[in-house]
Amino acid sequence: MTDDALFDADGVASLIHSESVLDGVFDCLGRIWRPASATRERELGDSEYRTRQLEHLLADQGVDLYDTLEAAAGDHPIGSLDHGCGVVMDGLSLREGFALERDLRADHDWTVSLDWAGVERLPSETKFVCRAWFDARSPSAVSRDDFRYVGDTDVPQLPGTDPAFVWTRHPDRRLEASTKGNYSVERFADIYADTKGLLERVVTESVHEEFLVSSDHGYVNFVGRNPFRLSDDDETALADAVGGRYTDVEAGYAYDRLREANVIRRTGGRYVVTGHYRPTTRGASKRVAHGGLSIPEALTPVLRIDTR
Rank of each mutant, 00 (worst) to 15 (best):
T2N: 13
D3V: 14
A5N: 08
L6V: 01
F7W: 08
D8H: 05
D8A: 07
D8T: 10
L15G: 00
I16H: 04
H17K: 08
S18K: 02
E19K: 12
L22T: 12
D23H: 09
G24P: 01
V25W: 02
F26D: 09
L29P: 00
I32S: 11
W33Y: 14
P35D: 13
R40N: 11
R42K: 12
E43Q: 13
G45E: 14
G45T: 02
D46H: 04
E48T: 00
E48C: 10
E48P: 00
D64P: 09
L65C: 02
T68Q: 14
E70A: 13
E70G: 09
P77G: 12
D82F: 02
H83M: 03
H83G: 08
V87Y: 07
L92R: 10
L92Y: 12
S93L: 08
R95L: 13
G97Y: 12
L100D: 11
D109M: 07
W110F: 15
V112N: 14
V112F: 14
G118A: 12
E120S: 12
R121L: 09
P123Y: 01
T126F: 04
T126N: 10
F128G: 06
C130E: 02
D135H: 13
A136E: 06
S140V: 10
R144C: 10
D145Y: 04
D146Y: 02
R148N: 02
R148I: 05
G151P: 06
D152E: 09
D152K: 01
D154H: 04
P156S: 12
L158E: 04
P159Y: 10
D162T: 04
W167E: 03
H170F: 04
A177P: 00
S178P: 00
T179Q: 10
S184V: 05
S184L: 11
S184T: 15
E186L: 04
R187K: 01
F188M: 06
D190I: 00
A193G: 03
D194S: 09
K196V: 08
L198M: 08
L199K: 11
R201S: 14
V203L: 14
S206M: 06
H208S: 04
V213Y: 08
S214T: 15
Y219V: 10
V223K: 04
V223D: 02
P227F: 00
L230V: 13
S231V: 11
A237P: 06
G244Y: 08
R245M: 11
T247Q: 05
D248Q: 12
E250N: 03
R259L: 15
E260P: 02
A261M: 07
I264L: 10
I264T: 12
R265F: 01
R266V: 09
T267Q: 05
G269E: 07
Y271K: 05
T274M: 13
T274W: 01
G275C: 04
R278C: 03
T280Q: 07
T281L: 12
G283E: 01
K286S: 03
K286F: 01
R287S: 03
H290F: 08
P296V: 07
A298W: 07
L299H: 06
T300H: 10
D306F: 05
T307C: 12
T307I: 15
T307L: 11
